[in-house]
């Protein structure tokens, strides 16, 4: 890419260009998130104008707009935003930490653990609502702990963690399949909707716990994530650079699992956001960095857009958002791959 000129000024120029790119990527993604967020508050069964939305948020709405905005649209949009951030960040951390683009919480079993617990609750005990959320969170945490404990052998190697995760994931998937085939078809279909991830009927009961968790987890993850680039150089090199490798890795794993867990508890494992956000964020940042912040924003954008489309697709009411995240994010990632490839820079 760069010519053979290695004088100082060209390095400075390259760095400056990198910074500009970083700022513009984060800025552009944030703008996109704000626009779609605003759209999902404005558009609905009845369009409420943006000034009215803003005055309602400021506490001066009519009874009608208060209900529609504050009780229906705002919690749903917030849930979409936060779930997207949580999955995007969690996926990016796992993929960077384990140095494998496929190693997102969906693939290595954390979301599967949450789903297995929730499906058991739905088809086994006929539970609904907040009880399912609690079960899902418990399932995610228990799976992660089991994974870490089983993979522990004088320290945890990323490779062994992945393999153990896959094993557990397969086991839990077979549990889910068993419940799905032994249940009534309608119950199983409810469970299918939950496993796909759905944002319909979200209210403050789901949003408030999610908000509190994210206020703690996101800054912690971003701060710990600053050394992810160094961990990527290999454990020994990172240790040589003064990174307390074992502690940082455990901290990051806990944060990433907690992020995936609380998000799954709120909406179900919105499929593929964690898997797709990281690669898309990295390919936008184009600087070889872990790109945690861009990935989080990409996650938020995917879920917000997907939910917006899901709500307004004709003929298919209540399409779970998870059905669309894959349908929207995946072609974008494929297109991105094809495009960067033909530029000769593909991974």
């Amino acid at each position: 890419m760069t010519a053979a000129a290695f004088d100082v000024s060209s390095i400075a120029r390259t760095r400056a260009r990198g910074r500009v790119r970083q700022v513009s990527v984060v800025g552009g993604l944030s703008l996109g998130v704000v626009v779609v967020f605003a759209l999902s508050l404005v558009v609905g069964a009845a369009v409420i104008s943006l000034p009215d939305v803003l005055s309602t948020l400021a506490g001066q709405g009519s009874r009608n707009t208060n209900y529609v905005i504050l009780e229906l649209r705002l919690p749903r949009a917030l849930a979409a935003l936060m779930v997207g951030v949580a999955f995007g960040l969690s996926g990016a951390v796992f993929q960077n930490l384990l140095r494998n683009p496929l190693a997102s919480p969906d693939v290595i079993g954390i979301s599967t653990g949450a789903s297995a617990a929730a499906v058991l609750g739905i088809v086994g005990f006929g539970l609904t609502g907040i009880a399912i959320s609690g079960l899902a969170l418990g399932g995610a945490l228990a799976t992660a702990m089991a994974m870490y404990a089983i993979a522990w052998r004088n320290g945890v190697s990323g490779y062994r963690l992945i393999l153990v995760g896959i094993g557990l994931s397969a086991l839990l998937l077979s549990v889910i399949s068993y419940f799905m085939t032994s249940a009534q078809v309608t119950n199983a279909q409810d469970a299918l909707i939950w496993i796909s991830g759905s944002l319909s009927d979200r209210n403050w009961n789901q949003v408030v716990p999610l908000l509190i968790s994210l206020v703690v987890l996101v800054p912690v993850t971003l701060v710990l994530g600053r050394v992810l680039g160094m961990l990527g150089l290999g454990d020994d090199t990172a240790r040589g650079l003064g990174v307390p490798v074992a502690r940082v890795r455990l901290g990051l794993i806990i944060a990433a699992v907690a992020l995936a867990g609380v998000a799954t508890a709120a909406t179900g494992p919105v499929a593929f956001v964690a898997l797709l956000a990281g690669p898309i964020g990295r390919s936008l940042a184009k600087d070889g960095s872990p790109a945690l912040l861009p990935s989080a924003l990409v996650g938020a954008l995917i879920v917000l857009v997907a939910d917006f489309v899901a709500q307004h697709t004709p003929f298919l009411p209540n399409l779970p958002v998870g059905v669309l995240t894959g349908a929207i994010g995946a072609p974008y990632l494929l297109w991105q791959l094809a495009r960067t490839n033909s530029g000769g820079q593909g991974g």
């Binding site: 909707i193 898997l275 797709l276 690669p279 349908a327």
Partner: peptide
Amino acid sequence: IKLALAGAAANAAFVSLTTGVLLT
């Protein structure tokens, strides 16, 4: 790495479409 990513992305797209058909 491109194979892995393209595979995962295609998988995501197919599963989404399949679920979409199944739910109807």
